[in-house]
Design a protein around this nucleic acid. Sequence first.
DNA 1: TCTTAATACTTGACGAATCAACTAATGACA
DNA 2: TGTCATTAGTTGATTCGTCAAGTATTAAGA
Lengths: 166, 166
Amino acid sequence: MTRDIVEELKQNKPFPSKGQEAAVALLRTADVLRRLIGAVVEPEGITTQQYNVLRILRGAGEAGLPTLEIADRMIEATPGITRLIDRLETKKLVSRERCLTDRRQVFCRITPGGIKLASKLDRPILDATDTALGILKKNELTSLIDLLDRTREHSNQQFIERRRTS
Amino acid sequence: MTRDIVEELKQNKPFPSKGQEAAVALLRTADVLRRLIGAVVEPEGITTQQYNVLRILRGAGEAGLPTLEIADRMIEATPGITRLIDRLETKKLVSRERCLTDRRQVFCRITPGGIKLASKLDRPILDATDTALGILKKNELTSLIDLLDRTREHSNQQFIERRRTS
DNA sequence: TCTTAATACTTGACGAATCAACTAATGACA
DNA sequence: TGTCATTAGTTGATTCGTCAAGTATTAAGA
């Protein structure tokens, strides 16, 4: 008895196209997943975005990363990266230092406290995402990733095109 | 912290599991799509959430809908539904009226101006979503929708379960 | 009928996101 | 070397989102 998306939206009219139905399914599913992950990190007093920064900086290691490089690597685009990192700095989870060779850049590094917090969340996050996606078989997961990657690539082109011509 | 995660990070393996890779792909792709749709509605001075409300109310017709019923039908969960509709009312795109038979409820209806705006955006939104998802063949779209629907259904259960036991 | 619980919002306080405008530093090139 | 464009990031103004607590109304049970 899987409720399909038409029933969930309780709309009188069906979707005008398969593409739009897929778009809505995508947005709705991502929203559930976002809230699920949010519920995991929230007890630690950080947001999903802040957790994302911590993981990026942990991956970057001792060297750290310039502010806008972090923004580029975020899962979700984040124009307010400066203030996002401000909050992490206030919580002493990251530190910042102006680059000596190029004084325009500000290098951000994760602190020991930040590493500890990120590590504490690794397992719960992995459990949450694996459980959420665990309904799918391995080959279905591979297929889903492929479909999403191709869609994203194409949509991104379209987005860039759109900004360019306006 | 478990040993395998640490090792995977040291090996610079980007994703510890297929499920997490799919989760990230899902969030990233949805974000691009959200920004694409946002770029379409933004010139008309509304947000994607506001556009979503307009479509829901247009679908509901003359009768309108109670406030929280709109919240239930939103593509993305929206705790601040009252103020979201406040903004639409200020723009004279929706009207509100307290229900006479149950004075707790407030029925919202779309105005002619709201219908006009929503209709104006129908084609551009359809074009944007169809173009974005147009990279996929029809059977791939069907497959994607199925995978997403099943994932959402399962994740939603997990989310509800999580809230209940905490 | 009286009390209690549940429903349907609304409001306040605050944190977070967004866009444009700004500063500072560097690079390109005549 | 001086000018101008580019890059990297910050700040201000505003809107938006979020959570907790509150109000009004209805429903349900003793």
